[in-house]
Design a protein around this nucleic acid. Structure first.
Lengths: 244, 244
DNA sequence: CGAAGGATTGATTAGTCTCAACGCAAGTGG
DNA sequence: CCACTTGCGTTGAGACTAATCAATCCTTCG
């Protein structure tokens, strides 16, 4: 099963026909995107997206140029639901890697919701998850120290990728540059680099060539005070692929 | 007009009859809450709320006891839509002050949405606003320094209260203790206290007896790098009550 | 080979936390 | 009516975290 369907069916059981219908729907709207493409610039009218492959970030800027990455979207994520109501959005959506994304018009979106009540429910779950995720990120930035933040973020990414079948063994993608990671974690690239070295030195993770290798997952979770509850709101993601 | 209706009609025009219908609906479900009451504890099944009066916060805890306030709800705010799907929520909802809140069951909620398409749209706006707000809070914690965070938060609260008619002159409520404010802003109470003194010393704001007085609003906005865009997504809140 | 973008290092400074004490005002019980 | 308590705000000193500024070192790629 592909990541998009893995993701969609985490909380809602979908018939095979509904799944293939959804897959076809997404396939039809999917377009390639290249690393660093902006899908949406501040001031644009909002749109709804379904990410098929690749990584996308939402980023906000302060007047003086400081930037914060405020969300990370991975394959299968459906985001900015109803955003088409907003005449001028305040953020940028940027592709971190090459990939494919489906851009939904309002009518596309309505058709999708109307297609089946299960899909509508899956979309609601999607929103709830993203809200929970934002809350966790707030806690991350507000309460955790730099090293803890880094560890927590690595846990989250590995866990999320694992849930959609994109982690192999103890390894997953990590296409961010250190500067980008620093923008996610609200710290300086220099300091982030030192945190990564610390984790490397403690034999907890290895980060090379944009691959993240988790050497000691439980240690990593401990350092990051990571509790995956916010990623699996109803406690059922996929028992067959329990990570670490 | 009361704060709840002020809030509801910021983005969507509602007929007088729809408004009074909504008001009646809320009134019927409204219950008093006392300061420090927990409306929801971690592990509870989620519910949907409409805040009639008073302040409510959402707060998250780390395993070691550190706490972060991740959202602030003011009169008129409708929050945790669809949360009843979640069997075990991960946060606490706590009343900061006495007030009144309507707790909606799933059927209440569905009845509300069915009542009119305008109300359904208003609820969608509500979600979009809260998302935008969370994004701004993330930027606040990630990129702004302590003093800037304090200034920004004061701007936000004053602006939001002003939009629903709960700010008089340059003054509004600020019922938080400094310890709570510190939990909103991800810093130590001690350091928060020093930031407040700094703002007081610069004659920007005054904070006494749980009232916030904005002495120099444009200066405050400047210090906090505050851009109200995220609070008024479609640019139309209420031209007749332009703050500061 | 040279250029460029990232990663790494070092030295210094600024910002924030920690801990501990003290002040003040409101409430409580004798 | 006073002594005591309690919760919150304020102050100070010192330690530590993270930012800043620059330089250097890799790779990769042309």
């Amino acid at each position: 099963m592909n990541p998009v369907l893995e993701h969609l069916t985490r909380h809602v059981r979908l018939s095979v026909s509904a799944q293939s219908e959804f897959a076809t729907f997404v396939q039809r709207l999917a377009k390639p995107i290249a690393a660093d493409d902006a899908l949406l610039e501040p001031g644009d009218r909002g749109k709804t997206f379904i990410l098929v492959s690749g990584w996308i970030v939402r980023e906000a800027s302060l007047a003086d140029g400081r930037r914060q990455i405020t969300a990370l979207f991975l394959p299968g994520d459906i985001f900015d639901l109803h955003a088409d109501l907003i005449p001028e959005c305040g953020y940028r959506l940027r592709a971190v890697t090459d990939g494919e994304v489906a851009v939904l018009s309002r009518s596309d979106f309505q058709r999708l919701v109307a297609a089946s009540p299960e899909i509508a429910e899956a979309l609601t779950w999607e929103q709830l998850e993203q809200l929970a995720n934002q809350t966790e990120w707030l806690t991350n930035l507000g309460q955790r120290k730099a090293l803890e933040r880094v560890a927590h973020f690595f846990c989250e990414v590995f866990w999320r990728l694992n849930a959609i079948g994109l982690a192999r063994e103890n390894q997953c993608d990590m296409p961010f540059t250190q500067a980008e990671l620093a923008e996610v974690l609200g710290m300086t690239p220099v300091h982030l680099n030192r945190c990564i070295q610390e984790l490397r030195g403690r034999r907890v993770v290895e980060l090379r060539g944009h691959k993240l290798r988790v050497i000691d997952g439980s240690r990593l979770a401990e350092i990051g005070l990571f509790d995956p509850g916010y990623l699996e709101l109803d406690g059922v993601i996929d028992g067959s692929r329990e990570p670490v």
